[in-house]
Design a protein around this nucleic acid. Structure first.
Lengths: 150, 150
DNA sequence: TTTTTAGTTCACAAAACACTGAACTAAATA
DNA sequence: TATTTAGTTCAGTGTTTTGTGAACTAAAAA
C-alpha cells in the first residue's frame, strides 16, 4: 500500500514554491521536489517509499534523483537497526558548508573580474572604474562570509 | 568582409572562462559568450557584426541571443549619428541593479525558509534551530546589501 | 528454498533547448 | 527605382534533459 505522507494545505503550497525556487537554481524538478518535501514535512527523515508515494514519482526516477542528491551532498541518509530501509534527510545542520560552496562560486566570479580588469585597456575609464567597484563589493561580501561562517 | 576583433591570447582565455562561468549560472552558450566578449574586449561597444564574426555565430543565433540579452537587461545598445548600426555594451555602471536582483532572490529564499520554520512541528528541535540560524545569516547578508548598495 | 523487500540499472520516449540556413523586412543609399 | 545594409523571423535539425517501465540484484524473511 501507499506510504504517502499527509501534508497540510500550507505544506503542499510550501513544497511547491520551494521546489520552483530550487528549479530556478538549476535543480531538476524531481530533485527539487524531494528537497522541498524534506524541508517542509513534519518528519525530517523519510523513506524511499514515502518520498516516492508522496511526490508521485516513478521508482527509477526517485532512485536516480536520490542518488544524485546524495552524490552532491544535498541529502544524507541513516539506517535503523532491524530495518532494511534507508531514511533520507537534509543535513541542514551543515548549512554553513553549503553556504561556503556558494561563496566559492562568488569568489571565482570576483577573481575572473579581477583578471579581466587587470588586462583591460586603460582607455575605458568608466567601465574599469565600475568593474573595480563591483569587485570591491564582492570582496566585502566575501568578508562577511569569512567573519560570520568560515 | 569579416569584422572579427583581435583578441590577445589572454583575452581569448578570459572570454572562454567567463562564458563557462556564465553558462553555469543558466545562460545559454551563445549569450554567455557575447557577455564575456563585451566584458573582456578592449572596446566596450561592439556592433552586431563584430560580435557575430568574433564569436563565429550564425546571424540568426546572434540576433536571438542579443534580443534576449536586451530583454533581460543584461545588455544595452547605443547608436551613432550617421551610422545605421547599433553598438552593444554591458551596462556595468548599473551593477548595483544587477546585484539587487540577486539579493531579491536571496530574500525570497529567506522568506520561504522563514515560512517553513513558522509552520514546522516543534518536535524537530535541532532541525528548526539550524534552519533558524541559516535564515538569520541570510538576514545578515541582506543587511550588508542594504548598507552598501541599496 | 522461495519469496519479499529495497532498491538499481538501462533502453528508450517525450519534451525542451540551442542553433542553423533561408527567406523576409524596413530603412538608407546609389 | 534598384540595391545594400542591418538586422528579424521561422521552420527545421541535432542535442540534451527528464522521466518511464521493465528487467535485474542482493540481502533478508518466510
Amino acid at each position: 500500500m501507499s506510504e504517502k505522507i499527509k501534508l497540510t494545505k500550507e505544506q503542499v503550497e510550501l513544497v511547491e514554491q520551494y521546489a520552483v525556487f530550487m528549479e530556478q537554481t538549476n535543480l531538476q524538478p524531481a530533485m527539487a521536489k524531494i528537497l522541498a518535501l524534506l524541508n517542509v514535512a513534519d518528519e525530517t527523515e523519510l523513506s524511499f517509499n514515502q518520498i516516492q508515494d508522496t511526490l508521485g514519482l516513478s521508482k527509477s526516477g526517485t532512485s536516480q534523483a536520490i542518488s544524485h542528491l546524495l552524490a552532491t551532498n544535498r541529502m544524507e541518509y541513516k539506517t535503523k537497526l532491524g530495518d532494511r530501509k534507508r531514511y533520507f534527510y537534509v543535513p541542514i545542520h551543515k548549512w554553513k558548508d553549503t553556504a561556503s560552496r556558494h561563496f566559492d562560486g562568488l569568489e571565482k566570479y570576483r577573481n575572473l573580474n579581477h583578471r579581466i580588469l587587470a588586462q583591460r585597456s586603460k582607455k575605458t575609464k568608466e567601465f574599469n572604474e565600475a568593474l573595480k567597484e563591483m569587485t570591491e563589493f564582492l570582496s566585502a561580501l566575501h568578508k562577511v562570509y569569512t567573519e560570520k561562517i568560515k
